[in-house]
Every structure is written in C-alpha cells, then in structure tokens.
C-alpha cells in the first residue's frame, strides 16, 4: 500500500540521470508531441511534455528544477503552436513546481500515485491554460472540458508505460 506522507530515506533519495537524458528526453517529448498527431489524427489526446515534466519533477524532488523544466518545455510547446508564447509555459511551470513539491511527500515509486498525479496535474494544467487565456489575457476561446478529460486520461495511461521506461535511464549507485 502506498505510504502517503512517508519520509523514509529511500523516498527522499534524489534520482540522478546521465546528462544527455536531461536534454534528449524532453527533446524527444517535443518531437513526438509534434509528430504523433499526424499518425493518430484527431485522437492525439496526450501531452508528452507534461508527462516528462511531471516525471523529472517527481524524480529530482526539486521544485526549482521542476519549475524550470516545466517552463522550458511549456515555452517550446507554445513556440511550436500559433498561440501566444507563455500560456503553456505558465501552466507547466506551476505543474512542475507542484509535482516536485508533492514528490517530496509521497512515494513516487507507486504506479497508482503516479497515474493519479498525472491525471490531476493534467486537469490543473488545462485549467491554468483556460484561466490565462480567458481571464488574464481576455481573449475568447472555445473550450471543451471533455477533450481535456480525454487528455488527462491519455496522460495517465502514457505515464503508466513511459515512467518505467524512463526509470531504466537513471544512474545506479
């Protein structure tokens, strides 16, 4: 059973990765996020940069690193779209910070917690996006919460398969 709030030495262990992983994995996430919609069409209900942000934030357990990772990936994601640069950046910055903050307090090895965290942070990211777009910038935007729900589910499923793969990349002591 997951031990929520556990502060054992194992849980507090900070994961370390080869230097290239910090560059290549986010880049691969951006590339696949831009390319996969051509393959799956309108069913591209996932946000790989967010999944990667949550993964590194949870693994590194550093709110600053999670914040920076989220900001960079969000800004690049915005730059690839036609929208204003910074909307996804703000959303993923907050998500990265929160994921790292939560990662300090919960057992991130547990798959159920990972999936639930991805689901919740995906919906939060969508809510922040909507808030920034509509209320902070005052621009009109048609919104479908159902689509965002699908994306959250997609991210959770993706996390279930991607997190164990990325775990293999971490450095062993």
């Amino acid at each position: 059973m997951a031990r929520v709030g556990a502060i054992s030495r194992h849980d507090m262990e900070v994961r370390r990765y080869p230097f290239l992983v910090y560059g290549l994995v986010p880049l691969a996430a951006l590339v696949l996020q831009a390319w996969l919609p051509r393959v799956v069409g309108r069913y591209a209900w996932f946000d790989l940069p967010l999944v990667v942000t949550v993964y590194f934030a949870l693994g590194r357990r550093s709110p600053i690193q999670g914040t920076i990772m989220g900001a960079v990936l969000g800004l690049f994601e915005d730059a690839l779209t036609g929208n204003a640069i910074g909307i996804n950046g703000i959303a993923k910055t907050v998500c990265g910070f929160l994921a790292a903050s939560v990662g300090i307090r919960v057992d991130v090895e547990n798959s159920a917690i990972r999936i639930m965290l991805n689901f919740a942070l995906s919906l939060l990211s969508s809510a922040i996006y909507l808030f920034v777009y509509r209320f902070l910038l005052g621009m009109s935007l048609e919104w479908s919460w159902m689509t965002q729900l699908y994306i959250a589910i997609g991210n959770s499923i993706l996390a279930f398969f991607v997190f164990p793969l990325l775990d293999r990349l971490k450095l062993r002591d």
């Binding site: 914040t67 920076i68 900001a71 640069i85 910074g86 703000i90 907050v94 903050s101 902070l136």
Partner: peptide, 19 residues
C-alpha cells in the same frame, strides 16, 4: 523555491502582455 517560481511566472506574464 517560491521566489524562483514567482520570477518565472512574472517573466512569462510580461512576455504575454507584450504579445
């Protein structure tokens, strides 16, 4: 941590306001 978060958020908001 909070200061870094705030700085990055404010910087992005200023960037949005320019656009």
């Amino acid at each position: 941590n909070y200061l870094v978060l705030l700085t990055i958020l404010v910087a992005q908001m200023i960037g949005l306001a320019v656009q």
